[in-house]
Nucleic acid binder design. Structure first.
Lengths: 206, 206
DNA sequence: CATATACGGTACTGAGCAGTTCCGGATATG
DNA sequence: CATATCCGGAACTGCTCAGTACCGTATATG
């Protein structure tokens, strides 16, 4: 109506209108989520730690679950893109090249976030979708590229189940972090590659 | 004091003094836990569904977390004992023999319970211990027996990492149920054995 | 049959938290 | 400098739920 056009014509006054602090707030939300889990997390915790008011958060997100949904979905963004992936010429080389401290930290944080929302995933399809898109799929995608390359260059058989193989690494890591509560270190990841993944595609470690 | 001795001398009156209904209540608690997660579960839900009063539950357990802790710990009990395990003469035979509908259902329920308490595990050592004892360790123990047998009969190399191998199956199942939300069926479990576990110990499916 | 006892059920208390409202101050615009 | 706008913060509301208190009843004992 008229008001809406009016508002659209002359909206630029006062403070910055763009939601500049959104990413910062979402980042804090993820931290709190990872530390306390969904139910342990309160809006006030997020607001306080982000030096914002509760009202500010509710101006931007309708509810707590909206905020968390958005925060989880926004983890999807900062993936390493295809061009920045290692390409060493061998499957093992590619897989081993992914073992870097920043990558490990990122992965552990994702799993802590995951731990905070697992129980919701079963009952909230939106959350399940967001978690899958942001936490499960990106990991699988990277592995998928490595396995396809290996098939293309004839390193491994073409009839292997790529989708299944993509999950082995993530599954072993998730089990270790979420259920065994043990740290993920280089040794563990190397043994995953050499003792489980490579044998599954018919390759030896050497 | 005197009262205590008196009570000890002549305590047998009224209704049954033993906590006969405890197992029933714990079973209900596990159901609710699996359905709603720890925070979604209320004492009243458990009481109502068990046709008991809230007071009855609080007479037996000091708090909600006590009840859940006890419920989880009590899942440890009804394991199949060593003698009832299959012993087919081959590693693959033993592993495949474990694929039975009751076993699958049991496993899925355990994982739903696990999903309900994952976020607590990180912050509550007692819960972590209970979950490990009741949900993680029994699965590993069965596999451990199978792998040791295979080593003893010379079917597989003696220097393989048994502890690591024990976790592969559970890890793949947990990842599929908790994060991928896909069903665990015979086909999936067979492919775990033939495409992942057996290759990892240097055996072929046939 | 009398009685002590535990049970199921209901009502209550208090705490914690999602979500709302309001206000004083900061800030960019003109 | 005046003003429109948004923000941080604090106070408030309403609800849910852990935990408690109490009561009428069922039941095993003697």
């Amino acid at each position: 109506m008229a008001q809406i056009e009016q508002a659209a014509v002359k909206p630029r006054l006062g403070r910055k209108r763009d939601h500049t602090r959104d990413p910062e707030i979402l980042e804090v939300a993820l931290d709190v989520l990872a530390e306390t889990g969904y139910d342990g997390m309160t809006i006030e915790m997020v607001a306080t730690r982000a030096k914002a008011g509760k009202a500010t958060l509710y101006r931007r997100w309708h509810s707590k679950s909206d905020l968390v949904l958005d925060a989880v979905a926004c983890m999807k963004g900062r993936e390493l893109d295809v061009d920045s992936l290692p390409d060493t010429g061998t499957l093992r080389g590619d897989l081993v090249a992914m073992i870097k401290p920043p990558s490990i930290r990122d992965s552990e944080r994702k799993l802590k976030v995951m731990a905070g929302i697992v129980s919701m995933i079963a009952r909230n399809p939106e959350m399940a979708a967001a978690a899958h898109e942001a936490l499960v799929e990106p990991r699988a995608a990277v592995n998928r590229i490595f396995f396809r390359r290996a098939i293309d260059r004839g390193e491994i058989r073409a009839d292997i189940d790529v989708e299944k193989l993509c999950m082995i690494g993530p599954a072993l890591v998730a089990y270790r972090v979420l259920l065994l509560r043990k740290p993920v270190d280089r040794e563990f990841l190397l043994s995953n590659i050499d003792e489980v993944i490579l044998p599954a595609v018919g390759l030896r470690a050497a």
